[in-house]
Every structure is written in C-alpha cells, then in structure tokens.
Simulated scan of single mutants.
Amino acid sequence: MALTDWLGAFRRAEAHDVSHDLDRGYEAALLIQSIELEHYNDRPVRPELELALPRAAQAQLLRRFRAALEICRQSLVTLEAHRGELIGQEQRQLQLIETVVSRYPVRRQPLPAISRSPEVLPRSLLGVVDQVRRQLDPEAEANMVAGFRRRRDSTLVSLRILLLLILVPVLVQQVSRTYLVSPLVDRFAPDHAFLSYPSPQLEERAVEKLRVYRAEIEFDYLLTGQPLPSREELHAKLASRAQELKEQADQESTHAIKNVFADLAGLFGFLFVCVVWRRDLQVLRGFLDELVYGLSDSAKAFAIILFTDIFVGFHSPEGWTVLLDGVANHLGLPARQNFIMLFIATFPVVLATVFKYWIFRYLNRVSPSSVATLRNMNGGG
C-alpha cells in the first residue's frame, strides 16, 4: 500500500513537471511571437536592427527575447522524452515551441534572413508522417498509458484545487462571521460608534414601517367596528413599535461591518490556498487551457458571444445595476444612482475594448478559425 502511494505521488510529481515545462515553454513562445509581430513585422528577431525605441527599451526587449528563447529550448529538451504522452492541445503547444526554436538555431550561423525560405514539404504532411511513426513505435502503448495517467492525475489535481478555491473562502467567511466576527461586533458595537454607523436607508425604512403600522392599527379598528384609539393610546403603541424598529435598525447597521470583516477573512483564505497550492494552480491553468482550446470553433464563438452580451452587450446595464445594488447592500453603502450610471457608462466600454484587443492580438493567432466563426455569428461585424 505504501509502495502504491509512493508511486502515485511520483507520477503526480512527474505530471506536474511536464505540465509546468509545457506551460512555461508555451508562454515563452507566445512572448517571442508577440515581439516578432509588434517590433519586427512578424519576422525573426534581428538584434542588429535599430528599432524606433530608446536604447534602454530596446536592450530590455532583447533581454526578454533571449530569456524567453532559453526557456523554450529548455522546455523542448525536457518535453522530448514525453512527446508520446501529449495529445490534442498539448501537441499544438509543443509544435509552436518547436516552430519558434527552429527559427533561432543554437549553432553559430548568419542571422535569420528577412524573408523566410519556403519549405520543401508542407508542415502538416510532415506532422502526419511523424504521427504514423509514433503509432508504429513499439513503446507507443506504454507512452499512451503514461499519458493517460498523467492527464488523469492532472484532472484530479485540477478538480481538487478548484473545489478548494471555492469551498475554503466560503467556509472561512461563513464560520468566521458566525462564531468570531458576529459575537465580537455585538459585544463592542455599543461602546464603539464606528462599528455601527447610521444609514439613511435604514432610517427611511423604519419610518415607512412605522407609517404602515399606524395605518394597520386604524384599519383593524375600523374593520371590527370599534372606535378609534385615543391620541394617548395611539402614541403609546407607536412609541413601542418605534423602539422595536430602532433595535432592528441598530442590529442591521452592524451587518455591514460584519460582512466586511467576514469577507476579509474569506479573502485571506483564498490567498492561503493560492500560496500553499501554487503548483496545483499551474496544473489547473493548463487543464483549463486544454479544456477551452479543445472546444470546437462554434463552441468558442458561442461562449465569447454569450460572455460579451452578458457583460458588455445591450442588456448588460440591467445586470450591472443589480450587481452593484447587491454589493452596496452587502457592504451597507448607499446605492447612488449617479455612481451606478457612471460605472455602467465607462467600465463595460473599457472591458469591451480589452476583449476586442485580446481577440485581435491573441485569439486571432492561436485560433483564427474561431475568429472567423465569431464574425459570421455576429453578422459579419
């Protein structure tokens, strides 16, 4: 049993290393591609060229390029032994790393030419031949089993860290509010004014409840045919009810400070999970990338349209209004209509701009067919 646990832990650690190296190499390859596109007109980086940048900025850019290229080379050396275990999106990520590294050979040769020479055979045909060769390899079955185990371990780790990211902050927030924050605030609120600040909304609500209570008293007396109470009796009942409403308002005024302290405790719980299980978060990121980019082009376009219509579409103002009202009530803040309208007029616009920039710079290179499908689903816009 102990040997089985040790082997399982070793497989999980190896799977973490492979996923980590693949993610690092893929991010470095994307960084090199972005440098080529932005500063070298989508051509290989040539350090001897003078860019329209200050010397310090150009030197920093070249340092980033060399560091990213070194990461790509190290990742490629590490992943070469696990090539048979990679499938789907992982294979495409490895191919991108190989493509970037192949443009910058290690041996001393003249710098890359401005124009790339055409290849003798299409890269896709070479990929098919290489795939057939790997399938006929005697160790193909062992590599497939190892790849399945690595992906299974990555899936289990991703699901576990995802549950921890959701459950730990929620449990910490609820437990701390019930057993720690609420008793302390109720104990010290009468002596410290900052723990129970007055809220105009609570006062208006209490006055409205008192007005309704007076109308109910008069309605009950008229309904039963009894004479209306005298001014002294009505005043005594209203005074008693006003005292009850004041106590309720005082209790509700402390809910906001309780929510703030409990939310801070939940935030610390979330940060604790992120710090302690940092390696698992990297596995979760790779799992989500493979899950998202494994979708079909139509599914990607559908998800993008759904997300943009909810947060930056024509119907988003109603959703943002409800969300901001809920946050204001949770924190005990007045829901200012001017602030809400200003937020709706600026934040969704900024979010839409960032999202379009991401589609133009990243998604258009990683999955151009998804962008084309997105344009067709949007009516060609």
Rank of each mutant, 00 (worst) to 15 (best):
G266E: 05
A299W: 06
A236F: 10
L295K: 11
Q251E: 15
G269M: 05
F270E: 11
A242M: 07
F261A: 10
A301G: 04
S296H: 04
E244D: 15
R278P: 01
L234I: 07
A242T: 08
G269E: 04
T254E: 07
G286Q: 09
H235Y: 08
C274N: 10
L295D: 01
K237L: 14
I257C: 01
G269C: 09
A265D: 04
E233Q: 12
E247W: 09
Q226G: 04
R241K: 15
F287H: 12
F287W: 15
L223N: 07
L264R: 06
A262S: 15
Y293N: 07
E252K: 12
P229Q: 04
K300H: 10
N259S: 10
S253H: 02
L271W: 14
S296F: 04
K258Y: 02
A265S: 12
F270I: 10
L228R: 13
S230D: 13
V283H: 07
F268D: 03
L267S: 14
L234K: 07
E247S: 14
Q251V: 09
H235S: 13
D263Q: 07
E252V: 02
A265P: 07
Q251Y: 11
T254G: 01
Q282L: 13
V273H: 00
D280Y: 06
F272G: 11
D280G: 15
G266V: 09
L281D: 03
H255V: 10
P227N: 05
L288N: 02
Q248M: 13
E290W: 01
Q243P: 03
D263C: 10
F272C: 11
E232Y: 00
Q243G: 09
L291C: 09
V275Y: 13
A301N: 04
Q248C: 07
F272P: 00
Q248E: 15
F302C: 02
V292I: 14
Q243R: 11
L291G: 08
K258L: 03
D250F: 06
A256T: 05
L238K: 03
E232D: 08
G269I: 08
R241A: 13
E252I: 01
D250E: 15
K258C: 02
N259V: 06
N259R: 08
S298A: 15
F302L: 09
V292L: 12
R241S: 10
A236T: 11
H235N: 12
L295V: 06
Q282F: 05
P229I: 02
D289S: 05
I257S: 01
S298H: 11
D250G: 13
S230A: 05
L288P: 00
L245R: 09
V276I: 15
F272H: 13
A249G: 08
F287I: 04
L284V: 06
H255Q: 13
A265R: 01
Y293P: 00
K258Q: 12
A262V: 07
Q251S: 14
L245I: 09
